[in-house]
C-alpha cells in the first residue's frame, strides 16, 4: 500500500516548505519557530516562490536556511533587514515578505529600522525570536532582557527591558502578537493570521536559549515561561477557503478578527475579556504583566487603519521589477519635448 501524501490547498506536500538541516543548538526555540513557519505557510497554501525570507544577523537570522528551501531569501547585515525588505517590497509588492530577526538584531542595533518599518507600515511579517541574549557571541544580555532576570552565567540584569510589542503598538502597528516557541498551536494560528494581514505584522516570540539562558532564573527559559505566562485568549485560525460549517463553535464566548485575505482569527475568551482593538488597553496589560514578572501571549493589538508602504506610493499594478523598457525610459519624442522646454 502506498503512503498517502497530504497536500495543501495548492496541491503541494509539506516537504515543499522545508529547508536545510539546522545547525542551531539541539532544543533551541528558534527551530520550533522554523517548524511553525513551515506549517503555517504550508497550511495557508502560499506558493513557496512567492515568499521572500528576510533576515539580519544572529542565531535567529540564520534560520531562513532551515525553512522554505524553495523560496528566495536574503540574510543581510546586522539589524538592517527592514531596509532591505523595504527596497525589495517597493520593486516587487506581490511577494510575501517574511522577516526573521532576533532581540539583538531588532532591539539594539536595528531598533531604528524596526521603528521606521512600522512607521511606514511595510507589508511584511516581522518575527522576533526573542531569548534575551546574544547567542552567536556566547550569551551577552540583549536589550529585551527583563530587570532581575539572570542568564546561566554572570550577574542578574539590572536594566529595564525594551518591550518590542509595547514599542510596536505605540507606533501604531496594525498587528502585534506575542507568543512562545513552545506554544505550537497558538503560535501557528498567530503566524497564519500574520500572513493573512495586509501591512506590518509583528510577532514577538519568546524563544529560550538552551545554551546560555535556560536556567529557571532567566525569565525567558522554558521553565519560567511555562509557569509564568498567561494566554489572553485561545486563538484559532480559520482559512478563508475553509467552509465555516466545518469549524467548531467554541462553548464559551469568542470574537472573530477578520483578516485581509478573508480568513478569520477566532479569539476565545478565557478568564477575562481582552480588547485587542484598544492600543492603550494593550499597553496597560503589557505594563501590568511586566510589573508582575509575567508574560502575556496572544493577539495584543489589531487594526487596519493605515495604507501599506507600497500602497502609499501609488505604483502601477505590475511589480516594478517586471516592467519593460517602454515603461522605464521616456520615449525619444518625449525627450525632444523636454529638451525643447529647456532651450525655450
Amino acid at each position: 500500500m502506498s503512503k498517502v501524501i497530504k497536500l495543501n490547498v495548492i496541491d503541494r506536500p509539506k516537504s515543499d516548505y522545508t529547508g536545510g538541516p539546522s545547525s542551531l543548538c539541539p532544543g533551541c526555540g528558534h527551530d520550533q519557530i522554523s517548524g511553525v513557519i513551515i506549517q503555517a505557510c504550508w497550511e495557508n497554501g502560499i506558493e513557496p516562490s512567492r515568499i521572500a525570507k528576510m533576515s539580519g544577523i544572529g542565531c535567529s537570522s540564520k534560520t531562513p536556511a532551515y525553512f522554505l528551501g524553495q523560496s528566495h531569501g536574503f540574510n543581510t547585515v546586522h539589524g538592517r533587514m527592514p531596509s532591505v525588505t523595504t527596497g525589495a517590497n517597493m520593486v516587487n509588492k506581490d511577494l510575501v515578505y517574511l522577516g526573521v530577526s532576533g532581540d539583538g538584531d531588532s532591539a539594539s542595533i536595528g531598533i531604528g529600522q524596526f521603528i521606521h518599518a512600522i512607521r511606514r507600515n511595510l507589508n511584511m511579517v516581522y518575527i522576533i525570536e526573542n531569548n534575551g541574549v546574544y547567542g552567536l557571541t556566547k550569551g551577552q544580555y540583549s536589550a529585551t532582557v527583563e530587570k532581575g532576570s539572570k542568564k546561566r552565567k554572570g550577574a542578574p540584569n539590572e536594566q529595564p527591558p525594551i518591550d518590542m510589542c509595547k514599542l510596536a503598538i505605540n507606533l501604531g502597528c496594525g498587528f502585534v502578537a506575542r507568543s512562545f516557541s513552545g506554544a505550537k498551536k497558538q503560535l501557528t494560528s498567530l503566524m497564519k493570521a500574520a500572513l493573512s494581514h495586509n501591512g506590518m505584522a509583528v510577532i514577538d516570540v519568546i524563544s529560550p536559549c538552551v545554551t546560555f539562558a535556560n536556567n529557571d532564573e532567566s525569565y525567558k527559559s522554558y521553565g519560567y515561561v511555562k509557569t509564568q505566562s498567561e494566554e489572553l485568549h485561545g486563538v484559532d485560525y480559520i482559512h478563508h477557503f475553509q467552509p465555516m460549517n466545518e469549524v467548531d463553535i467554541p462553548e464559551g464566548g469568542f470574537e472573530d478578527v477578520e483578516l485581509f485575505d478573508g480568513s478569520v482569527l477566532r479569539l476565545e475568551t478565557l478568564s477575562t475579556e481582552y480588547d485587542y482593538t484598544d492600543p492603550t488597553a494593550a499597553i496597560a496589560a503589557l505594563h501590568a504583566a511586566e510589573v508582575d514578572k509575567k508574560h502575556i501571549t496572544g493577539l495584543l493589538h489589531h487594526n487596519t487603519d493605515m495604507p501599506t508602504a507600497d500602497e502609499d506610493q501609488g505604483l502601477v499594478d505590475t511589480p516594478l521589477c517586471d516592467l519593460s523598457e517602454d515603461m522605464l525610459r521616456p520615449s525619444k519624442e518625449r525627450h525632444e519635448e523636454i529638451m525643447a522646454r529647456f532651450r525655450a
Partner: peptide, 9 residues
C-alpha cells in the same frame, strides 16, 4: 539597504 533590497528583487 533599500538599494540592495531593490537590486536583489
Amino acid at each position: 539597504g533599500m538599494v540592495l533590497g531593490a537590486g536583489w528583487a
